[in-house]
Amino acid sequence: MNLMDTINSMLPSVLTADGLAGIADEAAGVVFLVICAITLIGGIIACNSERLVRAVAGLAVCFVGVAAIYFFLNSPFVAMMQILIYVGAVCITIAFAIMLAAPEDNKKHGPAGPLSGPLGLITAGLVTFGMIGLGLKTEFIAIPKINMGSVKLIGVQLLTTYSMVFELVSIVLLIAIIGSLVIARHGRSK
């Protein structure tokens, strides 16, 4: 799957198959900007909102934006998994935890202390600008592709080259399930 297909597969939105030229490409650019904006707005809500449920909603929006960005990055499969796992599982788990652990929502969960806000802003700003600078300064060398990175290849490599990691991840997931059950089990015992 090449870039054009990928862009094509990016929702019904915008593109012609012969893609990179003319109006279609401009449209893709517009869509990309919109998606970036959605992602960043989602992120801001997620880290700044006073109510945690809104933060989760913002996080979900941010994740959807990131999924759309993955479309631009040539990998619709990962994009779908992003929505499926992050929005469908992680966000909902967090929302459940909020309902379980913070029933009084009149209490604000905003920034702590008078100093932590500016302090956090400064730290985050430094880190961000450092990384942006690094990204802009460095010359990245592109090596020619040896394949298209299709879903089939992902599957094959997962079960051949990276089978060990695959197993390990499944063990981690198993442990996580058991662990969270053990930790959160105490409560209503029937």
Binding site: A46, N48, H109, P111, T123, V127, T128, M131, G135
Partner: peptide
């Protein structure tokens, strides 16, 4: 890379300023 950096910065900011575990 810039987009990722900004998201990363937001994450750092949230991690520092949030006072609840869920946040």
């Amino acid at each position: 890379l810039v987009l990722a950096a900004i998201l990363f910065g937001m994450g750092i900011y949230g991690l520092i300023t949030r006072r609840t575990l869920v946040g």
